[in-house]
Design a protein around this nucleic acid. Structure first.
Lengths: 246, 246
DNA sequence: CGGAATGTTGATTATATTCAACTGTTGTGG
DNA sequence: CCACAACAGTTGAATATAATCAACATTCCG
């Protein structure tokens, strides 16, 4: 029943909920680092219990404090994991896109979701139920090892994040961020990077306001370090950019 | 060779290094949540390879970027895990005391220590070698589960930390911190808490300067919310304290 | 006791936010 | 296809928060 069909019409401005669909979910799940080297026999029940979920741009995928139905793995689309503060203010922890997932820590400990999750583009996710994962953790050594390593990586990433967000100025954070985007591309001197989301969202990712972001970009442009065209930013002088990053 | 002996005299202002000592190390290690439900047979080689290390107050236990010899578990004493910034500035991530340990994430991934570790009091630690832990992770399901759960907890804690440090004012952070110290004690109305370290170190833990900390404490005292006597703080009006925390 | 570390207090300053007004962009329905 | 509404981004002025600098007081140890 209920194919992926025409996008359902929920009354609330919410994510569309999907049906059990082992085929689609399975292919997404199979590519996750979380399940690397896990025996097919262990995977079968996990895939069988997985479902699919769609979210339109702007839809809330999970509210802070809510229980997650399971780990959500993105087949396509983009979402932000954010810590809401006062009135529209928020700190974006990270963006989650295709072949990435979130929620491992909260799901494994049966704890409420520590962040708000909002789709930044129409997205499709596999929902890997909490129970199945908890069971797998207690039964499969390879999986437990993957979880440990992924969580350890996430933990080190958060320490880095905390370091940056408390120890560097907004200009340093922005410069460092642009540099990190450039690393994902080639190492050519004048290289173009594309912001993964709106400037407002990227600003929140960096822990600054859109106004500050705008001013900083203009300063860097005036210094001849970068060129800005919509969300495409050309790095003209990477050495100097690294210098600003400290 | 080399008993724990009279405290060695290293030329550098450093931690004293200890010898293999299965007895002492074993009793510390045995009580760690990390090894809960792990079979004795699995533990034996870990304990056998563990050593003991002493650090005097003020000694650097690990430098940021350095490789850790293994997970360090405190038998007694106290240390701070800190992110150094500019000239004496630092953000303290957490304090580590008796029956606690640190370094799991970096050790398991063979990555450099992301923080600087400094003894705040004369301390004794068990050093649980990296290799033994990595081997155990790949061999013992109960251990892998413990690691996963502990790292998941640490990850959620860091998210909370990031939330607080980016989303609340210094007064809110201090009030929340005092409240959390009180939670560890009884729930009586006028309750006394003791700061776990110097005010300067606690300020760094809260991401503020000692000057700001001093001013905030005086304000709260003037408001009649707390009483301050050295590092003993008496909470007079917990409701109002919670109100300040937001 | 004396010296170093820790803590307090006031004045000044830097950094980024907030508020407000305006411009540009995008996507939707008439 | 255009008009328009909602959203995204820019810019300037005023403001808030906490850091920095500097001087002094206190406490802790050896």
């Amino acid at each position: 029943m209920l194919q992926q069909s025409t996008n359902g019409n929920n009354t609330a401005s919410n994510a569309d909920s999907g049906a059990r669909d082992p085929r689609l979910a399975g292919s997404v799940i199979a590519t996750l680092p979380l399940f690397r080297d896990v025996a097919r026999s262990s995977m079968a029940p996990v895939v069988a219990q997985a479902s699919v979920r769609y979210a339109r741009r702007g839809a809330t995928i999970a509210r802070k404090g809510e229980r997650l139905p399971g780990v959500l793995a993105f087949a396509y689309g983009l979402a932000k994991l954010a810590l809401p503060h006062n009135r529209g203010e928020e700190k974006v922890l990270r963006f989650v896109g295709a072949n990435e997932c979130f929620g491992e820590a909260a799901v494994l400990l049966d704890r409420p979701c520590p962040v708000e999750v909002v789709a930044l583009a129409d997205s499709m996710m596999a929902v890997i139920p909490a129970r199945a994962l908890q069971k797998l953790l207690g039964a499969d050594l390879a999986f437990a090892n993957n979880v440990a390593k992924i969580l350890a990586g996430g933990l080190l990433g958060l320490v880095e994040e905390l370091d940056v967000s408390t120890g560097r100025s907004s200009a340093q954070r922005l410069a460092g961020y642009l540099n990190s985007l450039a690393d994902s591309g080639d190492g050519a001197e004048p290289c173009a990077v594309v912001l993964p989301a709106t400037k407002t969202a990227v600003a929140a990712r960096l822990g600054i306001t859109k106004e500050t972001m705008s001013r900083l970009l203009r300063e860097m442009k005036d210094l001849g370090v970068i060129e800005v065209s919509r969300s495409r930013i050309t790095i003209l002088d990477r050495k100097r950019l690294a210098g600003i990053a400290g």
